[in-house]
Design a binder for these strands. Structure first.
Lengths: 132, 132
DNA sequence: GGTAAAATAAGAATGATTACTAATATGTTT
DNA sequence: AAACATATTAGTAATCATTCTTATTTTACC
């Protein structure tokens, strides 16, 4: 799936990856930018985007499109699923069993090859539910 | 989920919806625009976008984000799933069983309420597979 | 027909993302 | 360690799908 691109080491990329690993909330490029700036005040937004693209193309991070107008990034590539709150727009990891078997169901009446899937769940998160 | 907004009839909106119903390939706003223009040469792209937003907010059509940089629109709102070809980027309907039960799995260790999900399957479509 | 609300065409504006460029960092080879 | 080749960067400009604005036209209802 991911064709390996030659990558030289860069402090900025390492910082971006390290930052992503500390977060569970799947930040946007802008949020990553604001945080990496604390350590590298001169980093540019282009560098953020270029490295996020490199990292996700190589399967080192995940790029999440949950239809809120922003791409989100996830430092954890283990199989897992996400929940997007319709009210507060939070994008949250779900602790649920692996449902990779749905690939088999999808492939049943399909002539092509299925090698993966993404699933987003929608609704109201626990916090918003309590606050109502 | 969908708060009903007052909608007056409009020929343009009807044409957009009728066109969507004739297509199985989930066209983008631009493709819809080019086609509706044949019937309404003066229609503007803003009208396309405004009506697509209205229709999808009211649950009359679906808005699909398959991460290719464009929003796609689907005139069929019955529960079904989509496949996105990694090679030709086609977005195709899958004829598979309903897997709504995954909502229950997702809700198991989750404090909030889940009312829906979207799932996209990825791989190589039958045509690309054959052409290789 | 008259009126109010919604919809339109046309165009301008927005804003996330991408592309460009000259300078710098990295890795490798002598 | 200097020289070289290539990747990466900061800074900035450009792209382009989508949204917004405004004056005008439709639609729905009395």
């Amino acid at each position: 799936m991911a064709e390996a691109k030659t990558m030289k080491y860069s402090r900025q990329r390492e910082a971006i990856l390290a930052f992503l690993k500390t977060r569970k909330d799947h930040p946007t490029a802008e949020v990553i930018y604001e945080n990496i700036r604390k350590e590298y005040p001169k980093i540019s937004l282009g560098t953020i985007y270029r490295n996020l693209a490199l990292l996700s193309e190589n399967g080192i991070i995940l790029k999440l499109s949950c239809d809120d107008g922003f791409e989100h990034y996830d430092g954890c590539t283990d199989t897992h699923y996400h929940f997007a709150c319709r009210r507060c727009k939070a994008l949250i990891d779900l602790e649920m069993d692996d449902i990779s078997f749905i690939n088999t169901l999808a492939e049943k009446n399909f002539g092509g090859d299925i090698d993966g899937h993404v699933a987003y769940f929608y609704g109201i998160c626990a916090e918003c539910k309590g606050a109502k």
